[in-house]
């Protein structure tokens, strides 16, 4: 580890500003799944208080990168640190500090929205008294009071996505990762997700936003990394990566085209 670990406790671990230390540091990451060499030396850093875009076409390796960061997959080579904790050495400490929202809204249909959130709050290691307080706070923050007591099976897609977000943030993690979060949602629900990401950034969280929707990325991200076929093809502030092109999409097409 290159830095001393921070204390657990959500906001206490975050710090604002582009010059802050990296919350997530990915260094020369390699990963092969089956016969597919998915990641070929990916490196980037995501800081607290920013939205960091991980961009690339489908199959570029975005989801695999996020899964390695949150310890679901073990890297073949290279390293990942989350707030100073290495994923190989301290996977449980990393998991305590990360919240992940994906496009696949998997929640327990026979539990109510509130029970779904409480389950993950308890598993996240929150104390018994704190669980109730945190669940209430998250329900209030995401405006879920009207359906909190309903079984998840009866909720709309947008409501389910809110439950999935609430589940991911109930332990107040300093690092939030969104993997194509809006791909199955309608316009209104997508907008709420974008607003939530901006709000989280404002609270000093490190937000990693993986998407192939470049319009969203251009509007939201402070910095981006574009990966293609498991390699980084561009990295930097969003405006820098856009360069002289009309928008990020043109820049992206140019970079991906150049990379073959």
């Amino acid at each position: 580890m290159t830095e001393s670990p921070h204390e657990v406790g959500g906001f206490a671990e975050t710090s604002r500003g582009p010059l802050s230390k990296p919350a997530v540091k990915v260094d020369r990451l390699e990963k092969t799944l089956g016969s597919n060499h998915v990641l070929r030396g990916i490196s980037f850093e995501a800081r607290s208080g920013e939205i960091f875009g991980l961009l690339g076409p489908n199959g570029a390796g975005k989801t695999t990168t996020l899964r390695v960061i949150c310890t679901l997959l073990t890297p073949d080579a290279g390293s990942v640190e989350v707030l100073g904790y290495g994923t190989r050495v301290s996977p449980q400490e990393v998991r305590r500090r990360v919240g992940v929202v994906t496009a696949e809204i998997g929640i327990y249909p026979r539990l109510t929205a509130r029970e779904n959130i409480s389950y993950f709050a308890e598993l996240s290691g929150l104390m018994d008294g704190e669980v109730h307080r945190r669940v209430d706070a998250v329900i209030d923050r995401l405006d879920m009071s009207s359906f909190a007591q309903q079984r998840a099976e009866s909720l709309s897609s947008g409501q389910k996505q809110k439950v999935a977000i609430a589940r991911a943030i109930v332990h107040d993690p300093p690092v939030l990762m969104f993997d194509e979060p809006t791909s199955n949602l309608d316009v209104l629900a997508s907008r709420e997700i974008r607003e939530f990401m901006l709000e989280s950034k404002g609270r000093g969280k490190s937000v990693i936003f993986s998407t192939h929707v470049l319009h969203d990325a251009e509007r939201l991200c402070d910095r981006v990394t574009i990966i293609h076929q498991g390699r980084v093809v561009a990295s930097g502030a969003t405006a820098e990566v856009r360069g002289g092109f009309k928008d990020l999409e043109d820049s992206f097409l140019s970079l991906v085209g150049a990379a073959g």
Binding site: L72, Q92, R95, G106, F120, L123, S124, R167
Partner: peptide, 10 residues
């Protein structure tokens, strides 16, 4: 598709 979230807990 709840497995990933479950395995993400510490």
């Amino acid at each position: 598709k709840t497995l990933e979230s479950l395995l993400l807990t510490p």
